[in-house]
Design a protein around this nucleic acid. Structure first.
Lengths: 306, 306
DNA sequence: ATGAAAGCGCTAACAA
DNA sequence: TTGTTAGCGCTTTCAT
């Protein structure tokens, strides 16, 4: 009998109607990924991670890009409900939006936060220690002897930007130095913003001997700016990034950076979400390790500038 | 009365249940994007294009990445049906899979093909002339005087690979030259495959003075290989890519490439799909223009090699 | 203009 | 084990 059904399925080429299934069982088997898209590198790793984890699972991924999370936090939740999504992976800065988190809790939609930096009571989430990581990468530059250091921050609406700034400051303090606020420029996590910021930093006569960029796209932008000004990296200028995106290893010199396992974090976050959806208890937090990736983009400062 | 309803909606914070709506009206407001992911650059442009067109529309995007379209063509269709998708944008090489196209036609699911190269009767689709485009970029290299030219092909399972090869051959013929088959290597559209292929090409004593890569990721891989071998680009080696992805403008030297408006093509394909879904008649084909983007990665061959 | 009712295709609870 | 039935929340058709 069981076999007769199978046979009929085959003969009729029967495929269940997902929406009827969903209606009856209150489940769409769709999960969402909310993110802003400043850095393509980051977005790719993120999405690949989620998709990788979803492979073989019944769930599908709906991408919900948002222009600016902070401007449109309310829309996001409406988006989520109206998309009939079972749960959502929140990437920065959506993962730090009180508004979004509260609504999600309110409507009882499961979620997993990637790199949350506040509201620690709202779980689960996947984290790395941004502050310590930033301190380490800044420390590597300071250890080379650099003191005239420019900083290209990330998008100010992302909490990671200030967290990394704090880490930089810690490293400077530990080295008996301090950050020169006139050499700190806000970027947007994009190549172009890094390029522009670096031009500003490098156009000054007392230009920095090193630049700390808060992600790799901006670091590569800075590298391009240096190139156009005829400044040799790393001889005349050291540059470090953050993330260890693919972009950091395809340039020349390759960029020294702080590895943040975005792909793995996305996998973990997705697991956290799937577990919730299947009723499995989940830990409040999954921590991932950062790691300094030393490449050719740093060197001691030039003698004249040391 | 109408107002009383609106008021109730507000008070109860009523949100329609999409799946019930879907069940009743046989529509999920979900569209799919099927693609293989060799080149991250291409994938990003593609997806951004679709999402951009979807902004403000009711439709959401479900991403359906496929390991290898050719190995799993049958799965794809199952995926599509079971995902309750209203229509699908097919990127290469899914857009060239007879199996997939037939099934789609069979079940009556609307679709739009991006860069189809065969089965012209199956429409609609968004195209650029790969052959002519490839001929132009090869022509630019030949015009510099290069004759010992290496070629890094794309993934052989993508029809674009052979189309571009045809274009290269046309250009060689027009220049009274011919392709040296021993200098043609299959790549996979990835940075690493371009790197490996370039190493092979450059390790020979009579190494080429120019390399044609069939996309930008591989061109940048070739650039890296040259760097590691101490070969100066463009002085000792010219390199050109294809696509004009962001990756081609963030390296040094920046890569001369053939602009293929992937983003715009994705927008057009999505429009084609949305129009079908709304019952609007659509043209069989939307053509997009290619354009040679001259950058610093090419120069005349070195004298000793000319 | 408003109300009533019959599905949409499935799941889950219950009977047989 | 197999069969039956009542919803799931909406749209659409038909009556009022």
């Amino acid at each position: 009998m069981r076999d007769r059904v199978r046979e009929a399925v085959r003969v009729l080429d029967y495929h269940p109607n997902i929406m009827a299934q969903g209606l009856a069982r209150q489940r769409s088997y769709l999960i969402g990924l909310v993110y802003e898209n400043p850095s393509p590198s980051y977005g790719v790793d993120l999405q690949m991670g989620v998709l990788d984890r979803l492979r073989g699972e019944r769930y599908r991924l709906v991408v919900l890009p948002v222009r600016s999370v902070n401007d449109h936090a309310d829309e996001v939740v409406g988006l989520l409900r109206s998309a009939a999504i079972d749960g959502v992976v929140l990437a920065p800065p959506a993962s730090d939006s009180r508004r979004i988190l509260d609504e999600l809790v309110g409507i009882g939609m499961p979620f997993a936060r990637i790199s949350p930096t506040q509201f620690d009571d709202i779980v689960p989430g996947v984290v790395v220690d941004d502050v310590v990581a930033a301190a380490e990468v800044a420390g590597a530059v300071l250890a080379q002897g650099h003191r005239r250091i420019g900083i290209i921050k990330g998008d100010p609406t992302h909490a990671a930007s200030s967290a990394r700034m704090t880490g930089y400051a810690d490293a400077f303090a530990a080295a008996g130095a301090r950050i020169d606020p006139t050499r700190v420029i806000d970027g947007l996590f994009t190549f172009d913003s890094g390029f522009a910021a670096a031009r500003t930093l490098l156009d000054r006569p007392d230009r920095p001997t090193a630049i700390l960029a808060q992600n790799d796209d901006m670091a590569v932008g800075a590298l391009m700016a240096a190139r156009e000004l005829g400044i040799d990296v790393p001889r005349d200028l050291s540059i470090v990034g953050f993330d260890d995106s693919e972009i950091a290893r395809i340039t020349w010199p390759r960029i020294t950076t702080m590895r943040q396992p975005v792909f793995d974090m996305a996998v973990s976050a997705t697991s956290l979400l799937l577990d919730q959806l299947s009723g499995t208890p989940v830990p409040a937090t999954i921590a991932h390790e950062h790691r300094l990736i030393l490449r050719e983009s740093i060197a001691p400062p030039p003698v004249a500038g040391g």
